[in-house]
Structures are given as C-alpha cells and as structure tokens.
Amino acid sequence: MNLVRAEMRKLLGLPATWVASLLSLALAPAIALITTLQTRHTLAAGATIDVADLGFRDLAFGVIGPLVLGVVAVSSEYTSTGDEAPDARQLTVSLIAAPRRLRFLAAKTAALSVIVMALALSATVITITITRAAMGDYPLPRLEVTRMLAVALYWLLTALMADAITLITRNGVIPLTLLMVNTSVVSVSYLLSKVTRAAVFLPDIAGLHLFVRDIDTPIRLAPLAGGLVMASWVAVLLAIGAARFSRRDA
C-alpha cells in the first residue's frame, strides 16, 4: 500500500499528468459536442443517420489522454534529472526505495489504473451527458451502463498497453509515436483490416468492439470477445515488459 501511494504521488506530481488528465476530460466532450451539433443539422435537413455510436465514437479519440499517461508513468523514470546531472534518472532512486522490481511495477500499474479509471469514468459520463443534452428530442443510442463501463475498460487497457510498451522500449518517443499514429481517424490497424482479416484481432480494433457498434471490419466481434482479445494483448505485453524490467540491469 505504501508503494501504491508513493507511485500515485509520483504520477500526480508530474505536470505531464495534469496536461494528460485535462486532455482526457476535455477532448472527447469537445469532439462530441461538434459531432452532435453536426448530426442535428443533418437530421433536421431530413437525412437519415445512424446514431447508434453517437458520443461513443468520440470517446474512442479521447483515449489519447490515458495513452500519454501510460507512457509518461514509465518514461518519467528514465528522463534525465536535468542539465546539471544528465546521467541521473528517477529510476535510480525508485529502485533504491523499492528494490523488489515486480512489486514496484505492480504498485506503478495499480496507481496508473486508479487514475485512468477515475478519468475514464468521468469523461464517459460527461461526454454522454453532453451528447444527450445537445441532441434534445432527436433519436439517441440507448443509455446502457455496461456500455459506458466498457469505454472505461478500453481506456484502461490502452493506458496499460502504453505502459507495457514503454517498459519494453525504455523510451517514451517510440510508444507515443506508434500509438498516436494508430489512434488517428483512419488508423493503420484499420487499413490492415481491409487487406487481411487477421487485423481484426489487433488490440485497438478488437478493443473498439467493446463499445462501438457500427464498425466496418471484415469480422465482427462481440463486445466481450473484443475485450478479451485486447486484454490478452495487454497481458502478454505487460508480462514481456515485466520480465525484461526485472532481469535487466537498471
């Protein structure tokens, strides 16, 4: 418990965490607002539009905040202390304070999970509320609590995946580039799914099946199946990251 508290304090003490948190809370609602207003326009003009994913599709972009959090939680350990002590890194002190590496990692992952879950649940509630308020009497997706929890799970898994990849690369730039490019409106995974059916089982595409209903992929996964596929990826990546972290010289 001490270790988890220390890791929380560490994470919350970083300016990057606050920026990423703000992003988590503001991005999806902002996009959702623009989307709903557009949708209203279209509907008012008499066109038909599928509203099954209204609000939810916007939450898929909001994942950028948790992604940055996952990267920063690990990469901050490897950042140089400053110009005057370029070789010094926080990791040295972290391991002096908590030499059992797996325990240290478990505490870090727990702290990250708590923060991401809090942000994810808040962002989901805010986004869905805004969507419903802005749509007024127009048609809306049904209000399902499990679907909202599924969004939070997707955010959490994405943050953990970022955390695991950073643990493997020991550098924030690589996972950040990889994952941000793939959060794009047209992601690389989506492109791949147009060429090979196997791409549906990539973590992000599988994970989106958790809460997006209208996905244009060659195979459709049930929400539970999609979640399990993504969770397996995260588990494997975390295991590789943890194994490397505990074996390697710091």
Binding site: A16, V19, L27, F61, I64, V68, V71, V72, S75, T79, G172, V173, L176, T177, M180, V181, T183, S184, V185
Partner: peptide
C-alpha cells in the same frame, strides 16, 4: 516526449 505528443496530437488527431 511532450514535443512528440503535441505534434502528433495535431497531425493525427
């Protein structure tokens, strides 16, 4: 890290 996050945040999101 912040530079990459900012720039790619623009280019891809």
């Amino acid at each position: 890290v912040p530079a990459v996050a900012t720039l790619l945040g623009y280019y891809f999101i």
